[in-house]
Design a protein around this nucleic acid. Sequence first.
DNA 1: AATATTCCCGTTTTT
DNA 2: CGGGAATATT
Length: 737
Amino acid sequence: MAGVGKTRYNRRMNGSLSTIRDELLSGLNEPQRQAVSHTEGPLLILAGPGSGKTRVVTRRAAYLAATVTKPWHILAITFTNKAASEMRERIESLDVAEGMTVSTFHALCARLLRRYHEQVNLPRNFTIFDQADRRKVVKKAIEACDLSTTNWSPAGIEPVISRAKNELLRPRAFAETAIDFHSKTVARIYEQYDRMMRQMAGLDFDDLLMHIALLLTEDTEVREELEDRFRYVLIDEYQDTNAAQYRIARRLADGHRNICATGDPDQSIYGWRGADISNILNFEKDYPEAKVVRLEQNYRSTGRILSAAGSLIGCNTERKDKRLWTENEPGPDVRVIECESSDEEADRIAQDIGKQQRSGLKLSETAVLYRVNSLSRSIEERFIREGLPYQIARGVAFYNRKEIKDVLAYLRVLVNPADDVSLTRIINTPPRGIGQTTVQRLVASAEGVGQSLHSVVTGGGDLTALGRSAGKVGEFGKMLVQLASVMEQPVHDALEYVVKHSGLRALYSSMDDGDDAPINNINELVSAAVEFESQNEGATIGDWLEHTALLGDVDSVRDDSGMITLMTLHAAKGLEFDNVYIIGLEEGLIPFVRGHEDGDEEEERRLMFVGMTRARRGLVLLHARYRMMRGITERTIRSSFLDELPHDEVQWSAERTVVSPRRSRSVDHGTLPDDVEQWEVGTLVEHERYGIGRIMSIHRGHRRTHVEVMFRDGSRHRWVLEFAALKRVAFEDVGDL
DNA sequence: AATATTCCCGTTTTT
DNA sequence: CGGGAATATT
């Protein structure tokens, strides 16, 4: 929560009100001005990319605070923490509205649930379970229902439960909607999952939203309290709200109707996770008295970038027509580059950056965007080789590392002893001789008495049934009790103490000292805690855990880093760069399709639109003729989206460049047998270990050939042919089969 | 109980 | 291809 500091507000109030007003309205175009000066009643700001939305929103917040209300009555909700802190900074720099609440939906809900935990029947010290934790609990729930986790895969059930929660269906309500066998079974699992999560005082991301949405619906007292606290509500990126978020927004504004939604239907890219574009399309139906402002002048991009992006998005059929325009210069052509492979793609980008660097390109103003994270690999390799500094938007990945999760699991158990998932994780980490049979017995005994594992381990109860492990479990319990003594200390001290006395420091210090050695990451974690404390005075361990749980990938990108930024198209929403490279413009990738059913092509087009409009001056789109996906190199088809660009404003380059000379590829080639063309399904081969076998399938890629061989003993093996120790044998050499 | 090995799976985007 | 889980080994 943003601290309510001593306001510069008062000082500013000395200036006359009309002066402040004039200042806040200065330098704005007409629609922007209208949006800023609209105070009472619903307001919809339809803001195209680069149309100065953030500027309008921050000015308007300041305007509200200066004219009709106090900053603490203003609530602004964003999608990422990064957007929230940027907005907070920009508002505060206007010197008028310090003390506003600026938060993400999830962080806001978490905070409210701490306050209203009793109303939703939760302990105050609940902890937030990330997707991995949730996966584990879902799996346990499936097992507890006596179902096989192969027939009912956790990965398959999880999204169903998630969707139910987004639709605000508690287990019972969901069960009522279940009519067929499959959904009835899922309902049972959901119910079981819910029971287990409650027992562990755990909330998943969807719970945060669902509980607040339902609380606001069902508890009039709470709703009125919040309506009075938050008299002006602003929801950013409204086109990406899901049903739960929509409900929250509506309920918060029920009384006063001072709701301002900003967004752009053309940038709705989260349909797959339940976002409902009709929330923004129906805003005027929900609030018939709403004022609607359209921001269509673009201040960000060159004319050519804008017309290319506009031409693309114009191909969407389900769309409110909207025309973006700019007074900016046309700028250089948008470029499309055809490459041979992902390596060449990376090569071209590196070359291009190198060339432009000489004419003053700033690395921190350069981004490489892609549809799926796995595409970053070849770019990274290339940048490392070239010594080009880069950062990847992957904040979450850090917190997913084993050693980090281990440390956090200790803290989580201290904050919330009921958290069996975390306790199971740490009970034998570092190894202390408590194996899985012992853990199973502990679980059974905990279930027997309806207690948490923690209370069984620390309760001083009878552990003799565990045999020789009893002592070790007892010691572990004592250690937990001892660690709990640090709870009141500053977060980083507590953290250091826990790392040391849990034995994790010793465990990880002994490991190899590479660049990302576990111990370095742990140290980095401590630094992160120090930084968090410096920004949030008096923060508790619980606060910090909440913060880490709600971090997103984008939150890790720094603006002033002097590094190229690599990230997914999704993560790039809301950001801008001088130069943008988008890679992998190939059918199946952009637009993305998985399996056989078609994806949502219009949403894919919007995603591409978002990516293109991130660029201010330079936009380069690349595709490779061959690309390796999950181990197999395949011929690609270039994206149909490229055909939707205006031909005369795009520079097409199909020239083949020689891959740069110092990169000899012969090393990775392996030794290809001369007659490899003659190897085919049915060819007999010999392997020194498995003997004689027959090729069952062969897959010829661009520079790798994959074979699957079945041997006489019935075993089947797959190899990359170039690296496999296979010899071709003639039929007559084999003898009798 | 700890470690080494194989196998098998899924293949998007994220708060 | 790559990670995690099941399985084999010591």
